[in-house]
Computed example of a mutant assay.
Amino acid sequence: MPNMTAKLLCSALAVTFATEAAATEWNVSVWGSRRAFTEHIHKLADLVAEKTGGEFTMNISYGGLSKNTENLDGISIGAFEMAQFCAGYHPDKNRAITVLELPFLGVNTLEEEVAVSHAVYDHPAVAEEMAQWNAKMLMTSPMPQYNLVGTGEPRDELAEFDGMRVRATGGLGEAFRAVGGVPTSVTSSEAYQAMESGVVDTVAFAQHAHLSFGTINTATWWTANLNPGTVNCPVVVNIDAYESLTDAEREALDSSIDEAIAFYLENYGELLKQWDTVLAEKNVQKVMIADEELARFQDIAGKPIHDEWITSMSAQGLPAQELYELVVGTLKTARASN
């Protein structure tokens, strides 16, 4: 009988160890604090855990694993399994997706941003470039058009952008440079301090970031309709980690993306509805740029920068014209379906 008991105990322990070994736990590197920009990651984690009965879980870390500008590097060496980054932080590492950060692409809604982003992410040139960093594109983090906050007298004419020190990355930075601005790429976490200390005159962010990083708290005005473009921030996974998943785990992850994005869109939509209330509460003036000023800005910083990007990226061996036309075509299709 003792021998039988020992055998049963060993069998039970073996099952326990096998169960523990089968569990998959991913570390996810993001930054700042939990906000509208990261809600789809939390939703994805919830869905995956639910679909796998808790056998596949994600630990989401806000700055504890890596700096935001080094998340792609962390993915490349397998320091963590999933991460979020923004293309403008290191455009030389993710050249193909910088097409999505070109100014004045004409993307008007978050749904359109999702459509064009995922179309570009699915392009072979993007997959090939990301594979150099052992990264696989998973989903976008769609953001509305960026707008400026600043202090003092509102800058509502292009002439007032001349010499303006602006926190803006990627194509947005180039747009402001084209009209005489002086872009700086301080990280989002540093933007408030840069604005408060006078290192920058203005900060270009989407609404959630002006809230999350506090720039709205020191601002006296906000441009409601400048809308020069946005930043593209993918969520990627380490290829080795992705391929190591079981079929059931991979299916749970892949099948949860659309629902996670839908949750993000609904949540961000609520924030946008409340934005005017936020401005009123913080006594921030809503500035409308005149149509003729917007048209001038687009003429200077739109097509010329697009053409320059196509020429530059083509010279580097990327199918730049194809990627650009993919964005334009996807945008047309998305609007037609609406």
Rank of each mutant, 00 (worst) to 15 (best):
S314K: 11
L9T: 09
I97T: 12
S141L: 03
I257C: 06
D247K: 06
S312C: 09
S188Q: 10
E39T: 12
N147H: 07
S197W: 05
K282V: 05
Q285L: 12
W222C: 12
K332T: 15
A241F: 11
F85E: 01
G163D: 07
M137Q: 06
Q132H: 12
P234C: 10
D247Y: 03
T202P: 04
A22I: 11
H208I: 14
E128N: 06
Q316Y: 14
E293M: 09
V28C: 10
K51S: 10
K7G: 06
A49P: 02
I97P: 00
V166D: 01
H306Q: 02
Y324C: 13
E128S: 14
M195A: 14
S337L: 13
E50I: 07
P228H: 08
V15K: 11
T184D: 15
D299W: 03
N238S: 09
V235D: 01
G214S: 07
F56N: 00
A295K: 15
L72N: 01
K273S: 08
S117K: 02
R296N: 03
G88N: 07
V186H: 07
G78Q: 00
A219K: 02
P304L: 05
E259G: 08
L65F: 11
A36L: 05
Y121V: 03
I97G: 03
V186F: 12
V186N: 15
T277S: 12
Q316K: 15
E322L: 02
L245D: 03
R155M: 12
W309D: 03
T98L: 03
I261M: 13
S66H: 00
T19V: 10
I310M: 04
L9N: 06
Q84G: 11
S66L: 00
P144I: 11
E322I: 00
N267M: 07
I289L: 10
N225L: 10
N108C: 09
N71G: 10
K93G: 04
K282P: 02
H118Y: 00
T5Q: 12
V328R: 14
A334S: 14
V284I: 11
E50W: 07
F213T: 02
N267H: 14
L323E: 00
A224K: 15
S189F: 09
S11C: 12
Y264K: 10
H123M: 04
M288C: 04
E251V: 11
D307G: 03
